[in-house]
Amino acid sequence: MFQMQSLIFLNLVLILFLSACDPVKKSTLSTSPENSYKAPAWNSPFLKDFEKALFRTSLDVADKHLTGISIIKRTSDSSFHFTFANEIGMTYFDMEIFRNKYKPDYIFDPINKKSFLKILQRDFAILFFSESPGKQPLRKYLQKGSGEVVYLYLGLKLYAWMDTKQNTLTGLVGWSNYVDAVIVSFKEYDHGFPNEIRIVNPKIKMILTFNFLGH
């Protein structure tokens, strides 16, 4: 009996701790009136049939503003290749991204910092590999204003925004602690793929924007 109480207490502490780290402002959301939170299946636009895409790309981080063209190519079930070069053709990034690691082929020296690349890898992992888990979400909200449905998967430390009319994924927020969050938004879907993808990492003040150019 005592063990059971301890377990409940531990779970409660864990939920409180995870909730305390939650980067999403609850004042922007309203609680869904439903009692059960059945979420439809969803996945990142980079999963399923994605092979490769060309983007107009800009990266703002610290005092740097880098622009150019990038290619994201799926190289296996568990990896993507990301190459970003400026307009004249000089490479900034050339790296393989996995769920939990990255393999740099070439990184432009002024941005070749291990800590930055690790954060970038984690942000990309959320962008590339996120999909609805087997478990149902812990909470369901409605985004004030837009009416998008928001699912909270607390165990995964992930929020997913859905436009239920179009049945498209419009946003993701993932975090490991309060100061380490990443906000991904998908805008203007056309033939199942967003025209704009934006990754914002408030911790390092990074904004990475992809504007779709073609497959």
């Binding site: 490769k52 060309l54 063209i69 290619i71 190519k73 190289t75 290749h81 190459t83 070069a85 053709g89 050339d94 082929d105």
Partner: peptide
């Protein structure tokens, strides 16, 4: 034309 050696692609 930018030739990407690792992924064999062109921009």
């Amino acid at each position: 034309t930018k030739e990407l050696s690792v992924i064999k692609e062109k921009i």
